[in-house]
Structures are given as C-alpha cells and as structure tokens.
Design a binder for these strands. Structure first.
Lengths: 234, 234
DNA sequence: CGTGTTCTTGATTGTCTTCAAACAGAGTGG
DNA sequence: CCACTCTGTTTGAAGACAATCAAGAACACG
C-alpha cells in the first residue's frame, strides 16, 4: 500500500481494448465504442496500490478491465471493512458521478489491475448522446441495487449461521458447485458482520453438517445444496 | 390487506399532475413532461391495500406521488420484514424494469396513496428519447445505491447500540432535530436487524444517556447530537 | 527452510435473543 | 363518552449465542 497509480498517455488502441472488454459498453455499435474510447483513459495499478482514497473529490467513473479492486472503508478503530470486491466489468464512482459527493472509501488493487476511467463531464455527454449506453448503465445500477438490498436483508439476520449460508447460496447462485471466496476470510467476516473467529466456527459447522467441504484457503464446495438451504433464511 | 387496487381511466390531466409532482421528472421541459404523462397511468390505493405482491411479473415502474407505500418481504416464519418505506417521489420496480425478474416482495399502502405507473417498454422508449430523463434516473438510482450500501455497512455492526445510533443520525441527517420514525418500532427493529425488545431497550439507553428524548410513539428528538455521535460507528 | 500472516481452536465474558407477562394507545362499538 | 379489545410497546428473567482474549496451527512468502 503505497505509491499512487499513474495514468498513461492516451493511445486509443489501449482504451478501445479496455472499452470493448467491459459489459456495459458491449451493446454499443463499433463507432459508438470509439466515441467512448476517445474520452477514456486507461490506468494501471500494481498489487497493493491505492486507486483512490477518501476525501479526494473524484468525479470519475472507474471500470475494472482486468485484475481486481478491493473497496474498503476504514473504521475509527483502524479496522478495514470491505464494502465490495470489483472484478472485471464492475465499476465504481457512479455515486460521485451523479451526486456532488466525495467518497469516503479506499480502493486498492489486490493484483495487477487495468482500469478504464471516464470523467464525469465526458460520461454525462456520452449518456446524452448514446441512449443505449444510458440503458446499459441503468441496467447495471439496477443490478447493483438489487445486490445491495439483498445484502442488507441478509445482514439483518441476527444469527451468524443462516447469514453465512445465505451468502454462500448467493455466491454459488444456488448451485451445488465449487466457489472461490472473493476475499480473505477476515475480510469476509467483516463483510458478513461477524468476527473471523465466528466465521471459522460457522464454516466448520457447515462442514460437520455435511453441507460443504473446504479446499485450500478460498475454495468451498457445496456438497449438499439442500442442507445449506435448510439453514439459510427465507 | 385485501382487495387489489384498480387503475383509472387515462385522463392526462391527472397523469400530468402526477408526473409534474415527482422529482425525477422535474428537470424535464413541459412538452417532455407531456410525453411522459401520455404513457403514465395513475392508480390509487387505500390504506392497507396491496399495490403488488410477489410472483407477479411486474414490468412496471411505480412512483409514489402522494401517500406512503411500505415495501416488505415475507419470511418463512410468517414475519414481515420491511425493506423500505416509500414516500412521495420515491419509486420501485426499477429492478424488474431493467432485469427480467419477478419481485419477491409485497408493496402495501400505509395510507391513501396515489402512484404513477409507467410500463417497461414505455419507459425504455422515453429513456431513449429523453437524455435528461436518463440522467435523472441514473441520479436517483445512484442515490438509492448509496443509501443501500450505507445501510449494509450499518447492519454489519455487531452491537445494537451503535447500529441504532447510526440509523438515527442518518434519519436526522446529523442534525439535532426531531425526527419521525418512518415505520412502527417492530418494523424498525426488523429493519435494523434486532428484536423489538432490543430496540426498546436501546432507545431507553439512549434516553438515559441524554442523547435523545421520545415523544409519543414515533417521535424522537435528538437532544445532544454529540452524545449520539459518540456511540455511533465510524 | 525460516518468518510473518492468516486462520483455527479454546475458554470466558458479555450481549442479545427468547419467552412470558404487564402496560399503553388507538380504534371500535355499545 | 366510556368500556372494551386488539395491537404495539415495554419490562423482566433466563438462556443461548457470538465477541473477546489468548494461544496454537496452517499456510504463503521470501
């Protein structure tokens, strides 16, 4: 966690590659994509680098092209609380974009990451000119909203076990597959509103119940979906 | 909780009044508002009436014009969990609008309520034609997203007191004013991820601390903002 | 192969939930 | 207008659950 990332020369080719790789731009025609690429700047961040920090008045949309970005909040006790993990195609900054607000969170690359950035004014222009982009953005925001509200519902559950089970079901999309946790267990614990110790114990409990098995540090296989659903809420 | 609401004849005047009263349409020019009003239908709901219920494939945007709508989810134990309370200007259905999904919640009028409804296809057309509307919608969704993510952060706090304090600060916008709770205390308890008993005790604790006073059933006055902030997170 | 971090395990304390009952307020009908 | 009822809220006591503190084990790193 150290040096700020630096932006690059505008080379269009790189930007076009960035734009074409991102879902929200996928529905655009080729010439429209070029319009977007013209106002896009690609930036790179190495593992551990901070993409942006609180109090910076960022009027920029950041879209993850490759790699991963961890969005977290620093509590007054010094503990980090992960808000969200951004994988390729995900974006941040939409709040700062449409509402005059400074963000209060840190964004840190967890690996070598490429991002596309578009300034507020440029994006506003684009949305005005490209209705398809407007709809794609609305779509993406609606999706995010749904996730966030679902997570709030999950977190309102007092007991840790159903909360965890519900999270795992979301992650696996209710399939009996193997899922990779998107963050470390201590981050996940904070994300789920519990301590790392509790998370460890609850996972163990699910293993004992025969609902899941764990492989390595971040792999979880859902063995019996029904058993997981039995402890999950709703 | 009973009879379904009925929609009305399309009379434009009524619809225009509905459209002009809603923030997301406020930035539109008059002729644009008329375009919106043409595809809007106003519906009314009496206190206790269900506006929509789960499993109904609703591809409709509902905007509250007057009154109030309570959005809640029915858990398998039969308990209602309030997701959100919609006041004039607020809207629901944006998820069903942009993503092919059926909603799983109930929407119930808590008082005599007028809503504007716009169908998915009509709204899509409007967004394509009116960039200003697209931006207004993006703005509103971004705002909602911010609220939802903030609430998720709040709910991840294990201790009930700071969770409640944080909620009250949000409600009062960090002002030492009198606030009216948007829902009953038992609903609020579920919303905050605790039992009604705990909420009652924690409120009492805040009163004892000299942070707040209560008046009647839904009125809370923040006496000493600093004391409330002291127990709040972040 | 060591070193640091992450994760797990154990014992204890504290807090919240649960269950039960009393109380208050709003609405209703006599 | 008052008694009555129903729902919502508060209070109390007991038990369950998760947080905390402390230490050890597993893993990733150089």
């Amino acid at each position: 966690m150290a040096a700020e990332i630096e932006s690059h020369q505008h080379s269009l080719a790189r930007e076009l590659e960035c734009v074409s790789g991102v879902p929200i731009f996928q529905q655009l025609a080729h010439n429209q994509m070029i319009s977007v690429a013209e106002v896009t700047r690609a930036i790179h961040a190495q593992k551990g680098q901070i993409v942006f920090r609180p109090d910076a008045v960022s009027q920029t949309l950041y879209i993850v092209n490759t790699g991963q970005v961890r969005l977290y909040h620093l509590a007054d006790d010094g503990k980090e609380r992960v808000l969200r993990v951004l994988n390729p195609g995900d974006f941040i900054g939409e709040i700062a974009l449409f509402t005059d607000e400074i963000h209060s969170d840190y964004a840190e690359a967890t690996q070598t990451t490429e991002l596309c950035t578009i300034s507020r004014t440029d994006l506003t222009q684009l949305v005005r000119r490209l209705p398809t982009l407007a709809l794609a953005l609305l779509n993406a925001l609606a999706q995010r909203l749904k996730t966030a509200e679902h997570q709030a519902t999950l977190l309102a559950i007092p007991d840790a076990l159903p909360r965890l089970a519900g999270y795992l079901l979301d992650l696996s999309q209710s399939q009996a597959t193997t899922v990779t946790l998107p963050m470390s267990k201590q981050d996940l614990a904070a994300y789920l509103g519990m301590t790392p110790e509790s998370l460890s114990r609850k996972l163990k409990q699910l293993v004992t119940l025969g609902a899941i098995t764990t492989h390595g540090r971040r792999e979880i296989t859902i063995v019996t979906l029904a058993k997981l659903q039995a402890v999950a809420p709703q």
